[in-house]
């Protein structure tokens, strides 16, 4: 993916769209990765905040 001539954007980033579709589903509350997710959700932490702890 070579940058085409004359491509320019503020700070080199151009936002074009946003995610179009999603569905509500239930995750199974099982396994270490879910427990990590539940911990983040309950403390309203993001991934990077969680990494720091």
């Amino acid at each position: 993916p070579v940058l085409p001539e004359g491509w320019a954007a503020e700070k080199d980033f151009k936002a074009i769209g946003s995610i179009s579709a999603s569905t509500q589903r239930s995750i199974e509350p099982v396994g270490p990765h879910f427990l990590a997710h539940a911990r983040r959700a309950r403390h309203k932490r993001t991934f990077s905040e969680d990494d720091r702890i």
Binding site: I19, S20, A21, S22, T23, Q24, R25, S26, I27, E28, P29, H37, A38, A41, R42
Partner: peptide, 9 residues
């Protein structure tokens, strides 16, 4: 906690 959005694409 368990009901969240899932990406369709």
């Amino acid at each position: 906690v368990t009901t969240v959005k899932h990406l369709t694409n």
